[in-house]
Design a protein around this nucleic acid. Structure first.
Lengths: 152, 152
DNA sequence: TATTGTTATACTCTATAACTATA
DNA sequence: TATAGTTATAGAGTATAACAATA
């Protein structure tokens, strides 16, 4: 029997947990957490997200995301207004200041990632990314209904 | 900039979390959790572990592991006695019944893993495992001092 | 003085459900 | 009736520190 420490599932889970712990430790020095980075990066990729779609995209509970966005709005990193086409929804966007912060956090995150993968060649790291993308396809991120009434 | 959902770190963290969630859901039907599987698998690979070394090997807090081992000893899946060479330490081992349980849980876990990786070929899944092993080398599991007084 | 293991406590996190407003 | 978002709360999970026994 393959030892536990060679089972792909165990390796995947521990890799993810260790990488996250490294990232949290690095971002702690900036007074932020990985979830702030996820929000900024998602909003930078996809404008005009509702909180609901954002919470599904990055996998954070809608309740937690609510207070997170409150905080980030106070800091001026994101802005939100009501969606005129569906007044239940917000339209959340990253601000100029948020983009500046994102540049710094992205640099931190990429350094952490590169350090973690430093024993792999560039092509191997590329393969790893492709494998994970394929394994996750259809499972993540949860489908955002782009034709939903939330679209502006 | 690479979208968040294509960053290897994000993919790794989400893959690990999703796979763990799948596994927890599958094992829930048997009244166990992934941590029980980890303990049984580690003890099956490595006899005569102390609780301290075991907690480092599978990455569970020593306090949590204590009550976990209590429970598993009551169920007859593990047994422990004091290490005669260092009476502070336990010597924990898997029992015959524990091995029977492990066979069942391992089958569950492998099915979950195969399903999760079903979009990869066998050689790709093998590559993925090798990449993760290399990325984790030296980071996990934490070194067990095999020459320590805990050895029998 | 340091380490193993146990226990208790406090803190964090998450999940749930209730609620308002809107569709 | 269903959905977006907010809020409060309970439960689970985790980390910490104190302690006893042993080295």
């Amino acid at each position: 029997m393959l030892p536990l420490t060679s089972m792909t599932g165990f390796l995947l889970q521990k890799s993810g947990a260790i990488l996250l712990a490294h990232a949290e430790r690095a971002l702690e020095a900036r007074g932020t957490r990985v979830r702030h980075f996820y929000v900024l990066a998602a909003l930078n990729d996809t404008p005009d997200l509702s909180q609901h779609d954002l919470s599904q995209m990055i996998g954070i509970d809608a309740g937690i995301l609510g207070s997170l966005i409150d905080e980030m709005e106070t800091d001026g990193h994101v802005e939100r207004r009501r969606n005129p086409l569906d007044k239940r929804r917000y339209v959340v966007n990253i601000t100029k200041l948020g983009r500046d912060v994102l540049v710094v956090l992205l640099d931190d995150m990429q350094k952490i990632e590169q350090e973690f993968l430093s024993s792999l060649s560039d092509s191997e790291a590329g393969n790893l990314r492709k494998y994970l993308e394929r394994a996750l396809a259809g499972r993540w991120p949860e489908v955002i209904e782009c034709g939903s009434p939330g679209e502006i």
